[in-house]
Design a protein around this nucleic acid. Structure first.
Lengths: 238, 238
DNA sequence: CGACACCTTGAAGAGGTTCAAGAAATGTGG
DNA sequence: CCACATTTCTTGAACCTCTTCAAGGTGTCG
C-alpha cells in the first residue's frame, strides 16, 4: 500500500473549493488541514478499496479518475459512478463499517486520505465542516436519484446523451473544455453504468456520429452540437 | 398544514430502535427528545413535501406509508423509494436547502418533524447521534446502489422478486408477517420504481401466481415460496 | 511483431412496451 | 344503500428496442 504521510494542507490545495467548505476563518482552515491523514497513490487498474474492506476513511481525489462498482453474489456487476478530482469516495462504508463497493482507478491517481473519526471529531467543533459533510452525502443521494431516473425511464440514446453532458459539465467545472473529452472508461463500463450492453453503447455513439452530433475517435469525444444532446435528453414537449 | 406541537418523546417511542441510536445514556436520551419538533398528519394522497420546497427538517415516519419521486422537466416520473414506519425522509434537501423530490403519503400517515438545525446542533454534542445521522445517510446511499443494480442489470421477474422480498423483509422487521403483505402502491408506482410499465408488473405478478410462487388478490399478496423468489433474484450459478 | 484488450458492425432473437379492450374494485352523490 | 363514474388491474396481439451471438477491425503494450 502506497501511503505517504507527507504533511499536506487543504489550505494550499487548489481543489479546496471542491472538497471543503468555503468562507472558513483562517483558524478553522488550519484546523481542517488536520482532517487529511496523508495521501495515497493508486495506479491505473488498482483498487483504492474493495467490497468487504474495513471502513476507516473517506477519500478525496486529487488527481486521476475512478469508478465505483458493486457486484452481487451471482456475478452481476454494476458501475455505480465515475469520480474525478475533488470528489469524495467511501461514503458507502459508514453504515456498516465496511465498504460495500469497489473503487478502482481508471487512470493513475492520487487521493487524500481523511480518517472518518477525525472528520467526525472536527465536525463536532466546526459547524461549517459538519454541514459540508452533510451536504456531500446529500449530494450523493440526489445524484443517485438522477441515475435512477435515467435507468428507470430513459432509452439508450437519452442515457448516453445525459451521460456525455454530465461528464463534460463536470470536466468543465474543473477547467477543461466544454466540448472535448477523453473517456477514461471502456464501452463496457459505460454500459454497466447506463444499464446497457457495450454493443448498444458503441452503436449509439456511432448513431450520434452519423447524426453529426459528436465526433468519436476511440476514447476521444468531441461534442459538435450540445443542444442536440440536450434535446435528446429532454425532448421538447408540445 | 396539520402540525401538532404536542410534546413527544423518542424515549417512549416504540420505533426508537429504528430511528435513533441505541445504547444512549438516560441523559442523552432525554436530550434527543428535543430533536423532535412536533408531529404532522398527512392524509393519503397528500404531499409531505414537494420538489422545490424549502428544506428545514427531516421526517421520521411514525405510521403510514410514503413514496418519494422525482419528475424531470419533460414530465418523466420516477419513484425513488417507498418508505415505512421508522424510516427517515428529506435527506435530499440538505445539499441545496430545497427538496428535490416529492414525498406523497400512500396511506394516512403521521410523521415526526425533526428540524435539521436542531439535529446538527445536537449532533455536535452527542457523538452517537452524530454517527447515527451519518449512518442513516450512508444507508440511503447503499440502498440506492442496490436499486441501481436492479435497474441496470436485472430482468422484469428478477426486479419484481427482489422488490417483494425487500418489502416483506422490512415489514417483518416491524413485526408483520414474513409471507403476507398488502401493497400500498399501485402497479404503476411499482413499475415506476422498478423501471417497468404497469402492464409488465401485472403480467409478472400473474406469472408468479401461475408458477405457484405467490397468491395475489389485488393489493394483497401472499408469498407461498420464498426460496423460489430468492432463486429468481440470485440464479444459482453453476 | 504478436498477443491481447477494446471497439465496431451485422443479423437474428428475446424481453418489454404499446395499444386496446374489458373486468374488477373503489369512491361519490343522490 | 344503490347506481354510476373513476381508477386500477388484467390480458391479448403487434411492435420495437435492446440484447445476443458472431466476426472482423483497431489500437496498445510487452
Amino acid at each position: 500500500m502506497n501511503t505517504h504521510s507527507i504533511k499536506v494542507a487543504c489550505s494550499n490545495c487548489n481543489l479546496r473549493e471542491l472538497c471543503m467548505p468555503v468562507g472558513l476563518s483562517d483558524q478553522d482552515m488550519r484546523r481542517i488541514d488536520e482532517v487529511v491523514g496523508g495521501r495515497r497513490k493508486v495506479l491505473r487498474g488498482e483498487h483504492l478499496f474493495r467490497h468487504g474492506d474495513k471502513f476507516s476513511a473517506l477519500y478525496a481525489i486529487r488527481t486521476g479518475f475512478f469508478k465505483t462498482c458493486i457486484s452481487s453474489e451471482d456475478g452481476r456487476d454494476q458501475v455505480t459512478g465515475f469520480q474525478m478530482a475533488g470528489e469524495i469516495m467511501g461514503l458507502d462504508g459508514i453504515v456498516s463499517d465496511h465498504h460495500t463497493c469497489d473503487a478502482v482507478a481508471l487512470e493513475d491517481a492520487e487521493v487524500c486520505l481523511m480518517p472518518f473519526e477525525r472528520i467526525e471529531e472536527l465536525s463536532r467543533e466546526i459547524k461549517s465542516l459538519q454541514h459540508h459533510v452533510h451536504k456531500i452525502m446529500s449530494r450523493e443521494i440526489v445524484r443517485e436519484h438522477g441515475v435512477m431516473l435515467l435507468l428507470g425511464s430513459m432509452r439508450a440514446e437519452e442515457r448516453l446523451a445525459a451521460f456525455l453532458l454530465n461528464l463534460v459539465q463536470r470536466l468543465h467545472a474543473r477547467g477543461f473544455s466544454q466540448s472535448e473529452l477523453v473517456l477514461r472508461m471502456t464501452r463496457e463500463e459505460i454500459g454497466s453504468y447506463l444499464g446497457l450492453k457495450l454493443e448498444t453503447v458503441s452503436r449509439t455513439f456511432s448513431k450520434f456520429v452519423d447524426d453529426g452530433i459528436i465526433e468519436v475517435k476511440q476514447r476521444y469525444v468531441r461534442i459538435i452540437d450540445t443542444d442536440a444532446l440536450r434535446r435528446i435528453v429532454t425532448p421538447a414537449d408540445c
